[in-house]
């Protein structure tokens, strides 16, 4: 799909730089000024049943899909070499789509939980709703692109990754991505909007995931005094 040239440049060159700059600067600023707002503001204490079926599939699904995008970005040639055989291509694509659908199911359950439970609605801000809307669009457009314009793992590595590297090399070349189908272009633009919005949302918890919890020794915590 062809958009006017100025719009192409605004969406695929201006927006990415603006989004990444805002993300870096505001994330650091927020950490420096309001460190204790770096939290997912978990609502697990308020509701625990639907929470499991929403958060677990969403997180495992989205982490696997993001990791796939990162691998394609880091070693595109290795991905292309892997996809060189039809069976390997199909296995990778089916696995990636499974994780994508898992993330979408989890996200839908998560939004439903926030919508239908009064306690959840009370602790959900306007920014949370905006984040949900953007995440839902991102996951749904990703699944749509995977199903209707296969095989994304190959053309992402061959066509989109050079564009992303051109951004990082400060020599932006958006020529090819502007020729992709509309859904793929929207997926890319929405990703940059999410990156720009990242430091203003509870998504910042990604930066402070307590990974050492995975391998540290168990601790017994006792409180003394009135708390």
């Amino acid at each position: 799909m062809n958009l006017p040239l100025y719009l192409d440049r605004a969406l695929f060159v201006g927006l990415p730089y603006a989004a990444i700059s805002v993300c870096l600067i505001v994330s650091l600023q927020r950490y420096g000024w309001r460190m204790f707002t770096y939290s997912s503001l978990s609502s697990q204490l308020l509701e625990n049943r639907t929470h499991f079926w929403a958060m677990v599939p969403f997180h495992y699904g989205i982490l696997a899909v993001l990791l796939g995008h990162l691998i394609g970005f880091s070693v595109p040639r290795a991905v292309l070499a892997w996809n060189g055989r039809p069976l390997r291509l199909y296995v990778l694509e089916a696995a990636a789509l499974s994780f994508g659908v898992l993330a979408l199911i989890g996200l839908a359950a998560l939004i439903n939980r926030r919508l239908t439970n009064a306690k959840m609605r009370a602790v959900t801000s306007a920014m949370d709703w905006l984040t949900f809307a953007l995440l839902l669009f991102q996951a749904a457009s990703g699944v749509y692109v995977a199903v209707f314009t296969p095989w994304g793992s190959t053309w992402y590595a061959a066509v989109v990754v050079p564009y992303l590297w051109s951004l990082f090399g400060l020599n932006p070349d958006a020529g090819v991505v502007t020729q992709l189908p509309l859904a793929a272009q929207l997926h890319i633009v929405n990703a940059f909007i999410l990156i720009g919005l990242f430091p203003f949302t509870r998504l910042v918890h990604i930066l402070v995931v307590p990974n050492p919890y995975l391998w540290r020794r168990p601790q017994i915590v006792r409180w003394y005094g009135s708390r």
Binding site: W53, P57, Y60, G61, E93, A94, A95, L97, S98, F99, G100, V101, L102, I105, V143, A146, V147, P150
Partner: peptide, 14 residues
Amino acid sequence: GFFLLGLGGAVAGL
């Protein structure tokens, strides 16, 4: 077929 495979994979994940 690809979509059904992805859906099956997601259900298996659940």
